[in-house]
Write a protein that binds this DNA or RNA. Structure first.
Lengths: 261, 261
DNA sequence: GCCAACTCCTTATGGCGTAAACTAATCAAC
DNA sequence: GTTGATTAGTTTACGCCATAAGGAGTTGGC
């Protein structure tokens, strides 16, 4: 299930996103932790154990504290996830080389975002509905717009292009991320999984070929073979879909842009 | 967080997906419920209250039973979600009119899937990594392949096209779905939300225009105005991104297909 | 009539986020 | 110094969740 953003005081969340660290000359014990440290620990937990394992208890434990200790730094779990998302996006490059034209630059942007999603798959499970509006998110968008703006398309089109590209990268990264996560959490390898399932399919749906003629034609096409044995099949498949799809998309965009360049 | 598929006995899950209802002349009290009834109830819960509110208790309650009663029909929550997904996808059309060519047919397919996602937004939060392999999922894919196959592209390309289109529809439907869900769960309208946030942004990031020149240029472009006041802004925005993006994508695909038609 | 199979319930376990109340540390003002 | 306000961090507790275990009542075949 998608994780939603913090719903508490907006001022508090936004301050956390934009402010470095609060100044300190106040009574009370010195804080042993910092927001940054907590966010890092949370990212580490989510990266290694998945977002399902991201609990306040788990993050606290990693820092040698109780779950409740985190609440002095961060209003709640939702806000913590906002901070994680924005921090991870902030690591993306802010500028792309435009000397070879917009197309290689967009490709690089898409690739970087893709890699970021795969390095932090939990990011794909955080709702993007209400954007976090932190510096990281803005950087990601700014860098894409900076690449596309020189093509001279009108602002409205520019915005659509950015939206389309983001959607596509996100959608296709999800395919890979979920594949990996499924393997990790179930402990069942792809081959094994597929073998069991397809045998069952034959048994339970003996009329498969009549019901799904095109699918069964495709299955017989032998177009699917693992080129690189070291990469799981489904993952390789998804990676190629990403590359091919980006190609289709850029072709289409080129057709829109070309008339005016 | 993404909900994962059932991880129990694969035979059991697959039987549930493919078999209508088990034959019954066995001892024991007659079952008062059926798998189909449970799945319907679960879909109703998820549709109205979101997947976060989908608990075994909630589904049982809707049927006048306890949570544990469901476990006689369904191995667990994961498998129930599989059944829900597949059932919803099975409602999609199996065939599209090809008389006007592949392009309107693909557009119709994409639209239908999009509408399905928006009718059942929780579907977007169910991992697609390990496909459910039920009849519904196969129907959805079969109908797209049936549209694209007559273009004569090689099987491998066909597969990439299908993957790309699925990713894109899913990705962009997510944008709308999450927007709506955010409004529903937080109870804060878009305008209100945006107003508060942008005011805070100015206050907390006074150097915004220097850091994000392209974004701030865009914001000044006034390209963004709500044409239809009855539809929330972000949702309309996302819908247009979907339509425009599908256009770019189909243009690109057309370029790939054209040489051979 | 009896037994095995079955549905459905109650109860219990161990997780979760976080509210509330508390202890202990730290600084400013006196 | 001492005091009092302020803060960091703990413990405890509440109400959720999925589901394991075991028991009560129902039914068909023998």
């Amino acid at each position: 299930m998608v994780v939603f953003a913090g719903q508490g005081d907006p001022r508090r969340s936004m301050s956390l996103l934009w402010r470095a660290e609060p100044e300190r000359t106040r009574p009370g014990p010195k804080p042993a932790l910092s927001v940054a440290e907590i966010v890092d620990a949370a990212i580490a937990v989510a990266d290694t154990a998945g977002i399902a394992a991201l609990s306040m208890r788990a993050v606290g434990e990693r820092l040698g504290r109780t779950a409740m200790a985190l609440y002095t730094y961060v209003p709640g779990k939702g806000e913590l996830i906002d901070l994680m998302s924005d921090r991870v996006l902030a690591e993306l490059p802010a500028d792309y080389d435009l000397s070879a034209g917009w197309r290689p630059a967009v490709t690089a942007w898409a690739n970087d975002l893709w890699v970021c999603y795969l390095r932090h798959p939990w990011l794909l499970q955080v709702s993007q509905a209400r954007p976090v509006l932190g510096p990281g998110e803005h950087t990601m968008l700014e860098s894409l717009l900076r690449v596309l703006r020189p093509t001279g398309v009108p602002a409205r089109t520019l915005w659509r292009l950015a939206g389309t590209l983001s959607c596509f990268v996100r959608g296709s990264a999800q395919a890979v991320a979920e594949t990996r996560q499924a393997t990790a959490t179930t402990g069942v390898g792809e081959d094994e999984w597929w073998y069991t399932r397809s045998a069952l399919l034959e048994e339970l749906a003996p009329d498969f070929d009549e019901r799904f003629p095109t699918l069964s034609w495709m299955a017989g096409q032998e177009a699917f073979r693992n080129e690189d044995e070291s990469v799981p099949y489904l993952e390789q498949e998804a990676r190629e879909t990403f590359e091919a799809g980006l190609g289709f998309l850029l072709d289409g965009i080129e057709a829109t842009i070309a008339p005016r360049s």
